[in-house]
Design a protein around this nucleic acid. Structure first.
Length: 231
DNA sequence: TCATTAAGTATGC
DNA sequence: GCATACTTAATGA
């Protein structure tokens, strides 16, 4: 395996306060692995043996209900830690991590977690900030599920994707990884049929442009209006 | 308002 | 040419 360059980690929040030799140490302890799209990096309930940093690609974090239906809890963008069960003092992963596109991730054994937290300035605080942010997002989604109509929830979900992993294109902002209507319904507690109808209507209104597995938001401000208290 | 059923078309390996 | 993605209409809770 080629030696990884320190520049891979220098800009990233968990490592932003570290000097090059420290980043070198961390890299030398890591394993890097490439994953095809649709691969499970780890599965819900399995022993949390490693924690991960996504370098490239996108990850879907999926919870499975006892009835077997899937709920997409959140997406991970490049530069973010995931599989950080040790931060929560869990010894199993609380959810499954599936690659939404071809991805590249570093990982470390969980036994290094406490050492990292103690030794490396800013690592622990950044990790807890990440956990806090995800918790906050999930709370707003719970409120949405309880109080908002489907159209508003789907609009809000699309906006979150745009904000977290949008890519500028000529006509607007594109979700940077393949996403199906089924995926969107799994994020919003709806059905692919309803999502399909909504996207078709928004397409007619010029708010989005979508093709198979690709969605470009052409009028984000109008989506913001749709996601608000009243349509 | 929305899920479900059902029956179709489109797309891409 | 097949599986998967997507669309649309009808029905009914």
């Amino acid at each position: 395996m080629p030696k990884l360059d320190e520049s891979l980690l220098t800009g990233l929040p968990p490592f932003s306060l570290l000097d090059r030799p420290q980043i070198r140490e961390i890299l030398d302890l890591s394993v890097s692995q490439r994953y095809d799209a649709g691969t499970a990096i780890f599965r819900e309930g399995h022993d949390a043996e490693r924690f991960y940093l996504l370098l490239d690609g996108f990850i879907r974090v999926i919870k499975t209900t006892p009835e077997g239906e899937q709920i997409i809890a959140l997406h991970i963008a490049p530069g973010q830690l995931f599989g950080i069960a040790p931060a929560l003092r869990r010894d199993t992963y609380p959810a499954t991590a599936m690659t939404a596109s071809e991805s590249l991730a570093l990982s470390w054994p969980v036994r290094l977690w406490d050492g990292f937290s103690a030794k490396y300035e800013g690592f622990a605080t950044e990790c807890y900030r990440t956990v806090g942010e995800r918790l906050g997002e999930m709370q707003t989604r719970i409120v949405e599920l309880a109080t908002q109509a489907v159209e508003q929830r789907v609009a809000a979900a699309l906006l979150r994707l745009v904000n977290q992993s949008g890519r500028r294109v000529e006509t607007g902002i594109e979700i940077a990884f393949p996403i199906t209507r089924q995926n969107l319904s799994d994020m919003t507690g709806s059905t692919l049929h309803t999502v399909s109808r909504l996207l078709s209507a928004w397409e007619r209104d010029g708010i989005v442009h979508s093709t198979r597995k690709h969605i470009v938001v052409t009028a984000p401000h109008r989506l913001v209006l749709l996601s608000g208290a009243q349509g």
